[in-house]
Amino acid sequence: MDTVHRTKFAILPLLLLGTMVGVPARAQINLSGVWQNQLDEDFPDRLAGPELGDYAGLPINAADRLRGETWDASLITLPEYQCRVHPSDYAPSFADFRMWEEYDRETQNLVAIHMHHFAWATERTIWMDGRPHPPDYALHTAMGFSTGKWEGDILTVTTDHFKEGWVRRNGLARSDRAVVTEHFIRHDNQLTWVTVVNDPVYLTEPLYRSRDYVLGLAGQIAPYPCESVEEIIRPKEAIPHHLPGTNTFNKEYQERHGIPVEAAMGGAETMYPEYRSKLVGAGVQPK
């Protein structure tokens, strides 16, 4: 009997240790629910939409600047473009979203966290089960392929396999080679969603953005049907765009707000507070 008791006592700590070591990757903090978008940050960029030619504060390179300058908003009147969804790194700018967790029934391991955005009814999955990202030749999507991990109570997500998207919805492209890191930070019923866009094609530095949400206890997400229609009769191969140097609309933003061309055209330098001093030093007074 003594031997049996000793064995039991010896096994008990091992079992406890084993339980601790083998704890499945459960959510450190519950992010489930409907999160309501707070539009008090970057408001003009979000509902009304950015003005044409406003690239200030964005770390774009010269190639992306030309993408923006030659972009024609009429592009999105093409039937194939009317229901194009916002990519997952831009979707946080708009409206509410729902998050929910998926657990393996047997192990109760957290397999994935799912998200449904109101805007364009996009859905994405953040895999939490340690699976690898797909090979380069796999399909790219607007949502990308996401894997997540807990860093304390912060959910950190890495996403690649994007389709080409946009840095700002006034023509500035974000390439399909971008990798986005996201941090979901919950404080009580507040959620801060930080996105860090690394794009080796069109950005010279990472682009940081944050958006805030409030948990909606009675939150509902409405459907978002989208149907393409022929808005303008034109040859179906027509692609609206401006030839380089011919887009006069881009100057309206500069003139309306008294923004110098150099600042309006963006670039990494324009992201930092010191740039304001530089403008003030140069005698520029924004309207």
Binding site: L75, E80, Y81, Y137, L139, H140, E164, D176, I239, H241
Partner: peptide, 14 residues
């Protein structure tokens, strides 16, 4: 290149 769908072809056509 990689497996694609409409969005990729549209971007390339554009």
């Amino acid at each position: 290149g990689r497996l694609c769908d409409l969005g990729d072809v549209l971007n390339y056509r554009e």
